[in-house]
Design a protein around this nucleic acid. Sequence first.
DNA 1: ACCTGAACACCGTTCAAGT
DNA 2: ACCTGAACACCGTTCAAGT
Lengths: 197, 197
Amino acid sequence: MRNRSYHHGDLPAQLLARAEQTLREKGSGALSLRELARDIGVSPAAPSRHFKSKQALLDALALTGFERMADAIAASQEGVGETFAERLDAAARAYVGFAVADAALLDLMFSVKHSPEASEALSGAAHRWSELLLSLISEGQRRGEVQEGPLERVALPVFAALHGYVGLRVSGMLPPEVSENGLDDVIASILRGCRPQ
Amino acid sequence: MRNRSYHHGDLPAQLLARAEQTLREKGSGALSLRELARDIGVSPAAPSRHFKSKQALLDALALTGFERMADAIAASQEGVGETFAERLDAAARAYVGFAVADAALLDLMFSVKHSPEASEALSGAAHRWSELLLSLISEGQRRGEVQEGPLERVALPVFAALHGYVGLRVSGMLPPEVSENGLDDVIASILRGCRPQ
DNA sequence: ACCTGAACACCGTTCAAGT
DNA sequence: ACCTGAACACCGTTCAAGT
């Protein structure tokens, strides 16, 4: 009775939660729909009612990843100074922190292979995230601390540098001590790159 | 007879070549050891003599990717001007070109999951590639066009911005027109970020 | 040394059937 | 509507056996 209602309406959430856990603990290679179903105590065919394919579940997972990342970055802005440098620093550290804590999820979020239909929902979530950084930069422009120019054009190099540092770091391309202290240099370079001339 | 010698000593190369082809044409999700063996006309167990696991083959593939990428970047420097700006521009475009032409391979190269033993050989290949950019920056310093300071610390933000642009682009996060023209802004930002103060 | 054949323990997905 | 049971067509990997 209790078990019955337990598996009614909550299976999608259960699947996502469990998938996220094994993704974090064992990596994306160890993610199996059948094992997920087994762990939850449901038949191998059950997940297909809620996610029409394994890729659909991965897409949904990536989507929640973007939302949580946006939340983390938004939270990083609370109670921090008002200068662009301070706010960028906080956002960058939040981004890096999220990525390092959940490397496999980040990999999934920026994966090359998404089902075409998911790409729109996904870039929607990515857009919500990118708008945080865009408004941060826009505010920097308003304060005269960031160069003038079309927002997207000014923002792209900032995105690229942060995203690239994160990518290099989680893929293990950085020697340990660079991994520790490199972010400071990246942020400093970004600030020099986008300050008024 | 001819077939017999065909499958002697060349199977590893055949496997890698075929794997690279399906990686480019159908993505990493469609890469199956058994299918590779079938295509080449060999038994399902044959690949295991040369690559002890599927991951080992993927690692080898990533390794050749780094080598080809290093070749492409080295080639980009031939017959180009001597200023740092010109050389960086050429290297950046070679990097982007390689990545866009072989998105799935790039994904593999910077993938989070590599077998631990492969990581050393892999970061060796990555190192050979990174040394190209490092010497480029070192030369820029010598010419007084790049700020002084420890090479790795000056180089990281350059790497990060390029790698991040490539990552954003191949994962489809950039709107088409940003994808077209964004690299110019990224390069300009890098140059501002690392020029002498 | 290199490969085959066959087997093992898994997959994702589909579909009739149950409730 | 939601799930089960069973089946289908695949996987990666191992291992005795062949040459």
